[in-house]
Simulated scan of single mutants.
Amino acid sequence: MSDLHQHDTFQRVDKVQLARRFGAAARHYDAHARFQQEVGLALLARMSESSVALDKHQSPALTPPAAGLDLGCGTGFFLPHLASQCQQLHGLDLAPGMLQQAARRGSGALLLCGDAEALPFADQSLDWIFSSLALQWCERPAQAFAEIHRVLKPGGRLLFSTLLSDSLWQLREAWRTVDERSHVNRFLSLSQLQHALTLGGFCAPELQSLTWSLAYPSLSGLLRDLKGIGASQVNDERQAGLGNRQRLLRLGEAYEQFRQPDGMLSASYQVCLGQLTRN
């Protein structure tokens, strides 16, 4: 484990602040989470495809896997979709406010407040883990993957999505013309993510990087969505928030270079979709 900590790529994250920020956004999160929902549904589709492939090699009389986890479940949007995939579904999130919203889904999931880097589960106790756009907030990604590896049973599956380093590059570039700061959360590159997975115990991970392009009539829509889901900058440079009116006006002018022929402003996310099996 000492080797894990020595070589883990990490970013400074105030987890108390992170939990407070996402918790405060919980009640209106879903109204601003169109992108997050699209990514999670794409991941669910992959989960269903792989489950069908597995079922072809199993007896139809077999019951569903015993235990599954939605890691970073947020408001619980995906819990009803996941409930049929196991006998006992768990939902874990760092923010109590998110779990309060998740409890209203009526999914039957057992909800727990906890940290991905210190999972409150016994060794080899889970059949699968689903995690959509949550792992990018970890301070030590390799530690989180080591925990996932620890709690999965041999042959257990991890299905996850996470943001990569080119996410919101347009916003980052526009901010730099204003004050030479990025004001955008920093995420791992694909190679750094692969390294973190390997350190965490997953062998030769094969990952897919996709670009999600969103369109907004004005920059205010993008900024409103980021604030609405609690995803304003949370790592490093905490003092460099979104700024005052004059700076926002300058930001809007700088962002105009990314207006498309159809009149919409482009905002891009680089997303990794991963599906791994524990040896």
Score class of each variant (00 low, 15 high):
4 L>E: 13
188 L>M: 12
44 L>D: 07
35 F>W: 10
20 R>M: 03
188 L>N: 08
20 R>L: 04
240 A>G: 13
78 F>C: 09
91 G>V: 02
49 E>G: 11
245 R>S: 15
258 F>D: 11
74 G>N: 01
268 S>I: 00
50 S>L: 06
260 Q>D: 13
1 M>D: 08
237 E>F: 03
215 A>S: 14
92 L>V: 06
268 S>P: 03
3 D>Y: 02
116 A>N: 09
3 D>E: 14
36 Q>P: 00
40 G>R: 08
96 P>K: 02
239 Q>Y: 04
51 S>K: 09
245 R>A: 15
151 V>H: 07
230 G>A: 04
170 Q>R: 06
262 D>M: 04
118 A>F: 00
15 K>Q: 14
146 A>Y: 07
83 A>R: 09
109 A>Q: 06
85 Q>K: 10
239 Q>D: 13
33 A>M: 05
172 R>E: 15
11 Q>F: 12
102 A>Y: 03
153 K>H: 07
4 L>P: 14
61 A>V: 10
242 L>C: 08
114 G>M: 04
134 A>E: 03
237 E>D: 15
206 E>K: 10
253 E>T: 12
224 R>S: 14
129 I>V: 15
64 P>L: 01
243 G>E: 06
120 P>D: 07
132 S>I: 02
15 K>P: 09
176 R>E: 15
60 P>C: 05
244 N>C: 05
22 F>L: 12
112 L>D: 06
123 D>T: 15
231 A>S: 11
235 N>D: 05
176 R>V: 01
266 S>E: 13
164 L>V: 08
89 L>R: 00
116 A>P: 12
39 V>F: 05
158 L>A: 09
171 L>H: 10
174 A>T: 10
100 Q>R: 15
79 L>N: 01
117 E>C: 06
37 Q>L: 05
162 T>F: 01
126 L>I: 05
38 E>T: 14
231 A>R: 03
230 G>P: 00
73 C>K: 01
93 D>F: 02
